[in-house]
Design a protein around this nucleic acid. Structure first.
Lengths: 105, 105
DNA sequence: TCCTTTCATCGATCGACGTCGATGCAGTAT
DNA sequence: ATACTGCATCGACGTCGATCGATGAAAGGA
């Protein structure tokens, strides 16, 4: 897991280089959609979640949900594994907590 | 300051209603741009910051910086006050901290 | 009064993003 | 072999957002 710089509070708030700003913004962008926030919230209260359950939970088309899952995957916030026909998604707690620390934990 | 629900970790991770998801996403969207992340970072290490300093710090036009500051203002992450000709911006620590808690502090 | 500086807003442009239907591809059952 | 289900990808469409130049408003100085 790549280390992200501290964003604000805390004793050491060093200036951000452009690359770090872009990395941080990319992670926040993954949460900049209500559906993705809701997905993350749902995954937070369940160890695993089948895509079919997510499709049923949100009034969106299956490709749209799949797209949001890909965005979250690319951001490293969730991970998936296929078992048989189904795909299961899990939260990556370290990624969430690392993002939280950039807000000054 | 409006109370936001807990997002993930912690003992109580209640399901998010659509309105809360939208509110949370809106806040994350304010940080979903590298320039805004850098502005927040800069404000975090200085009590106050004049807009003219920000204009000088980023290689963007003055209207663009002004736009980003408005986005951050609308999100409640920063606040401003004019003194004479100059406008000074400050971070709103409670807003940042509240957002951090939604990530499960 | 007139000019300059500082900042916000406006209008336009262009690329990024959310959404969908259609399609493809495994896996499973009949 | 055929058909069906679960999920990812593709292509297209509409909207949103980042950016800029131009303009406006307010304050200060000559």
């Amino acid at each position: 897991m790549k280390m992200l710089p501290v964003l604000c509070c805390g004793p050491a708030t060093e200036p951000l280089d452009p690359e770090s700003s872009e990395t941080l913004a990319a992670r926040f962008r993954a949460l900049a959609d209500p559906t993705r926030v809701a997905i993350v919230n749902r995954l937070a209260s369940a160890d695993e979640c089948c895509v079919c359950d997510l499709n049923a939970a949100f009034e969106l088309s299956q490709p749209t949900i799949s797209h949001h899952l890909k965005v979250l995957r690319d951001a490293g916030l969730v991970e998936s594994s296929r078992r048989g026909t189904w795909a299961y998604y899990r939260l990556v707690p370290d990624a969430v907590s690392e993002l939280r620390h950039t807000l000054g934990g």
